[in-house]
Design a protein around this nucleic acid. Structure first.
Lengths: 137, 137
DNA sequence: TATAGACCCTGTAGCAACTACAGGGTCAAG
DNA sequence: CTTGACCCTGTAGTTGCTACAGGGTCTATA
């Protein structure tokens, strides 16, 4: 039903993506090349819009470009089992959990360093001290 | 007491840093140029080692190169008040806390998407569905 | 009809913070 | 005297965009 055509600016607005980013996705073959108008403007179909929306959602969820590429490839093979999809999502979840743990450890360290700052001179600053190689009390 | 000289490889080992990274720090003027031996090898002092250790600890704590540059600049002015140091650390802590919150939100979303996977075919995969633009039930 | 302004095009370079070569030189041990 | 470990410079690659420069196209209005 939707045989509408969209300019690159239309797609950008609809998916909250910069025009340059859309061209970048085309260059790295994540988004297929659209047709061109007489004036050499890109002319996108509703399918392109759908694919770009998919890409942006996956990116917002933190999937890497290569993961998105895999997910897109899989989403086209509708009769295959979806274990591969599950695996990619689980792998990504694992990465996210690892990052959260790392950042929480970091926060604890920064908290403890900051809590010791008596705000005197730099010579007696516990933050600088905490970063310095040798204990120089 | 320590008038020892170190090769770039010694520094790399002592601070768990790649040799290329040390040269990179020199190129961006984070680490001062060392003297050279007759054979044009870099020859570092204990002060260099201390400075590199400082850089690596700050980097491990997630400070950006520019923040490290600022911290290094401040750590040399030992008689000035350490409020500026405190501010950099607090700013960084804020960034870390924001990242933790973002990642936790992400984890919740991924969790909920993954929990819905019945592992049938891709056509009925809830993960792909969650990424797709239009509800296609 | 001229022209202003919004949009589009290609191509290249920049960002952070390294990392990985290629193509050489130096140095100590055997 | 040769092998191998180390060092040198310089450049290009990584990820995922973003920002130009220097042009072309299209539409609306004066």
């Amino acid at each position: 039903m939707t045989r509408e055509k969209f300019s690159i600016g239309d797609l950008a607005k609809a998916t909250d993506t910069k025009v340059e980013t859309i061209r970048y996705y085309e260059r790295i073959r994540l988004l297929p090349e659209p047709e061109r108008t007489g004036g050499n403007y890109r002319s996108y179909s509703a399918a392109h819009l759908g694919r770009l929306s998919f890409i942006r959602r996956a990116r917002d969820l933190g999937f890497s470009i290569e993961q998105v590429r895999d997910l897109l490839g899989l989403s086209d093979q509708r009769d295959r089992p979806c274990e591969a999809v599950d695996a990619i999502a689980r792998e990504h979840l694992g990465e996210v959990e690892r990052k959260i743990r790392d950042l929480q450890a970091l926060r604890r360290e920064l908290d403890s360093i900051l809590s010791q700052c008596g705000c005197g001179t730099i010579a007696e600053c516990r933050i600088i001290e905490a970063l310095s190689p040798n204990d120089q009390r």
